[in-house]
Amino acid sequence: MTIAAGTPRRKRPFWTIERRDAAAGYLFIAPQLIGIVTFVLFPLGLVFYYSLHEWNVLANTFNFVGAANYQMLLADKALPQVLLSSAIFSAGLVILNMSLALLLAVLLDQKLKGITVFRTLFFSPVVVSLVAWTIVWSFLLQNNGGINGLLQLIGVEGPNWLRTPATAMISVVVVQVFKNVGLNMILFLAALQGVPKELYEAARVDGAGRFKQFRRITLPLISPTILLTSIITIVGSLQVFAQIAVLTQGGPGMTTTVLVYYLYQQAFQFHFFGYGSTLSILLFVIVALLTFVQWQMRKRIVFYEN
């Protein structure tokens, strides 16, 4: 059979389903993508550009210095201490925040009267203004403050919390945890409630105790949430600085000067915007690396049903 000249050839249309879908996909992500390019990537590029310059804001000088700021970074004697403080702060914050959030979530998952009241109260610091929250705590943590007053009642002489290197770090971490643990708590609570109840019943039939149920059923099933919250918490921990500014101003010595606070000091207090930008790039690289590592590890630690 020949193809009759008069019969129109069935042309494959340009807008195939795949192409339509791809176009739709791009349209759907366009607002977000344009936003990220405009408000994140482009400014980040500018920060990198600044990091190659010596920029004195007040004198209005802006000179290209090449890698000088990066050499300064390597030679900065304060930086190892700052990185160590950041590591301690973030590790402490993540461990404490995650375990407290999980404990609270398990408690609040119980069938008890008035549990919603407790939920709300545990969550309440999240909505309290950061300024008020930090002020109250700096008041409680004073040498003659409320906490040492309580300790005195049981015959213990408390340390000078914010002025002793070891306890200053602990205090800053704990204050931050109480403020924000409510968010993770809710995420965990949601995950716990998403665990099918039949699984527990089956386990009970098999004679598994509470603790065993928790370890064998609950933990694996909420592991995706654990991964997600740990990423968010680590990233968040590297961005905390207002509380540190109020509670310790990075002291005593440099013990609570974490990287973002150091960056803030260099750029906004000392007016070294060039060097501050270099520290921003360092911070960004660290956060990106950490997240990458966690994301890669997800396959090993996260349990999926299928």
Partner: peptide
């Protein structure tokens, strides 16, 4: 500002 912070940090001890 930088001098203030540096002295503050050393004076802490």
């Amino acid at each position: 500002a930088q001098i203030q912070q540096t002295v503050r940090s050393s004076l802490d001890s």
